[in-house]
C-alpha cells in the first residue's frame, strides 16, 4: 500500500445500532459492510452503474462501490438487512416475492432499497416514473416487467396501510 494511506477509526450507525471500525483509506463501503458480515450490498460492475451495491447513507441511496468507507464516519448507514429487523418483511419485499420480481436475486437488494426510496418520495408513481427512478439498477435476469408490477403493488399496499 502506498505511503499516503491513512488508517482511521470511524463511528457510524449501522441499521440503527452504533458501531465503529478502523479502516484504511482505500476501503469502500461494500468491503466495510462485509466486515460486519452483511452481504446484501454486492459489488458487481464496480463503477456505479448497476446498483447491486446500493446502501442508504443518511437516507440517500448510494453506490457502495464508489463510496469510501471513511466517508460514512458519523453517518447513518442502512442496508437491506435492516429492513426486516422486526421479523416481518417490508411491504416492498413482500411485493417482490408475490410478483416474482427476481430470478437469481443478486440485484434484488438494490432494487428493493431503491423502491423504498422511490415510494418515500412518491407514494403513487406512474409507470414512466418507476422506470425512470429504477433506470440506474440493472438486472441481467431481466425481471423488469415483474419489478414494475411489484413496485406498483407495494405502492398500493403502502398507501392502503397509510390510509388505515
Amino acid at each position: 500500500m502506498d505511503a499516503s494511506e491513512t488508517v482511521k477509526k470511524i463511528r457510524f450507525t449501522l441499521n440503527g445500532r452504533p458501531v465503529s471500525a478502523t479502516v484504511e483509506s482505500h476501503v469502500d463501503l461494500v468491503d466495510l459492510l462485509r466486515r460486519f458480515d452483511l452481504g446484501g450490498a454486492r459489488e458487481s460492475c464496480g463503477q456505479g452503474l448497476c446498483g447491486c451495491c446500493t446502501v442508504v447513507v443518511d437516507g440517500v441511496a448510494m453506490s457502495g462501490c464508489l463510496t469510501l468507507a471513511q466517508l460514512v464516519d458519523g453517518k447513518r448507514v442502512d442496508t437491506i438487512e435492516g429492513l426486516d429487523q422486526t421479523g416481518a418483511l417490508s411491504p416492498v419485499q413482500q411485493a417482490f416475492i408475490d410478483e416474482g420480481a427476481f430470478q437469481c436475486g443478486f440485484c434484488t437488494p438494490g432494487f428493493v432499497l431503491m423502491t423504498h426510496q422511490l415510494l418515500e418520495r412518491n407514494p403513487d408513481p406512474s409507470e414512466p416514473e418507476i422506470r425512470d427512478y429504477l433506470a440506474g439498477n440493472l438486472c441481467r435476469c431481466a425481471a423488469y416487467p415483474e419489478i414494475i408490477r411489484a413496485v406498483k403493488s407495494a405502492a398500493s399496499r403502502m398507501r392502503a396501510s397509510a390510509a388505515a
Binding site: L83, D84, Q93, F96, I97, F106, T108, P109
Partner: peptide, 23 residues
C-alpha cells in the same frame, strides 16, 4: 401451481448465499 420460489425470502432480504460473499 405458481409456488413462489422456495428461497424467495433469502433473496429479498439479501441473505441468500453466493460464493461471491464467501470467506
Amino acid at each position: 401451481r405458481s409456488v413462489p420460489r422456495l428461497e424467495a425470502r433469502q433473496k429479498v432480504t439479501g441473505r441468500a448465499d453466493y460464493v461471491h460473499n464467501l470467506v
